[in-house]
């Protein structure tokens, strides 16, 4: 009897250790699941706590359908993602590459929503637009973490669109967002509630030929906050925070650029605004302080509010 107990214990121990080794990089929970299941897509678990024990450190628990999943105590890194079934892309080169060589019946419109981009190799673009035709890209409710760059917009066709809302970008090696369209009709850029943190090179780099409005966004703790490289770029910054960047907050790389700032906060950068030979228009409602140099070059032209 004692032997039998021992054997049982051994079998149990083996089972337990096998379970420990088999922890999922991604688990699923569902209202119709059961915590005795393996938390796979086809056999999901019932609670966050049940899925937690079967999920590897750094993994993700995804939610298959709306429901109550109970409380859970967390003592290892992981993601619990209930958002719109947030599909995720782990990319070693580029995550999603968009390349149109002609115009399709939907006018080359791509919408990416509820996605999470991570690069185990900390390289490549989360999303990269290439191709030769004008491309209209919307990115909504997405997260980008730890790649070479979050979003690279290099359409070969003029008159393209980049629209981003509710996007969070963190720890990119070079660019949060880079925009580099060709000559012709300007690219239209709309950023709303976009946060770029710890992008080592640039939060937002605009190379050329772009009209844009950036509203309620943040570019912080990176190299440069927002850098504009050509006079063909016209950008309005509204209620946007550019802070704690090791280089310049708002950088005009050449003379002759005009940028509007309205209700912006530019703090704690080495240089707040680099504006040699260029124009920055304010409305006496921007907070620009606590930079080693608040403004280099032409001062901010303050217009009266109405």
């Amino acid at each position: 009897m004692r032997n039998r107990t021992l054997i049982l214990s051994t079998v149990l121990a083996l089972l337990v250790s096998a379970t420990a080794f088999a922890q999922n990089p991604r688990s699923w929970v569902s209202g119709s699941g059961d915590d005795s299941f393996p938390c796979s897509y086809t056999a999901p678990c019932k609670t966050f706590a049940g899925a937690y024990t079967k999920t590897a450190t750094g993994g993700v628990i995804s939610v298959q359908d709306p429901g109550p999943y109970g409380s859970v105590t967390i003592s290892k890194s992981l993601t619990i993602d209930g958002g719109g079934t947030y599909a995720s892309t782990l990319h070693t080169v580029d995550g999603i590459t968009i390349a149109f060589s002609s115009t399709d019946s939907f006018n080359n419109t791509v919408i990416l929503r509820g996605l999470s981009f991570d690069s185990p190799s900390a390289a490549g673009y989360g999303v990269s637009v290439q191709g030769t035709a004008a491309t209209h890209l919307h990115i909504e409710d997405c997260k980008f973490t730890r790649a070479g760059a979050g979003v690279g917009m290099f359409p070969g066709g003029a008159g393209s669109t980049l629209l981003m809302k509710d996007v969070d970008i963190r720890k990119e090696n070079v660019y949060g967002v880079i925009v580099d369209p060709p000559a012709g009709t300007p690219l239209k850029l709309t950023l709303d509630h976009v946060t770029v943190n710890e992008s080592a090179g640039y939060g937002l780099l605009i190379m050329d030929n772009t009209n844009g409005t950036i509203k309620d966004s943040t570019f912080s703790n990176g190299g440069m906050g927002v850098s504009i490289q050509a006079t063909s770029v016209h950008v309005n910054l509204v209620r946007t925070v550019i802070s704690e960047n090791s280089n310049t907050g708002l950088n005009h790389a050449v003379a002759g650029i005009t940028t509007i700032i309205d209700g912006c906060s530019i703090f704690g950068n080495t240089t707040g605004i680099a504006n040699t030979g260029s124009t920055v228009i304010g409305f006496t409602n921007n907070s620009i302080a606590n930079n080693s140099n608040d403004v280099i070059g032409n001062p901010v032209q303050s217009l009266l509010q109405k």
Partner: peptide, 15 residues
């Protein structure tokens, strides 16, 4: 009507 808090600029003309 405004409340001295509207940023109206860089239009040709503004008003």
């Amino acid at each position: 009507y405004g409340y001295s808090n509207n940023a109206i600029g860089f239009n040709t003309p503004d008003v």
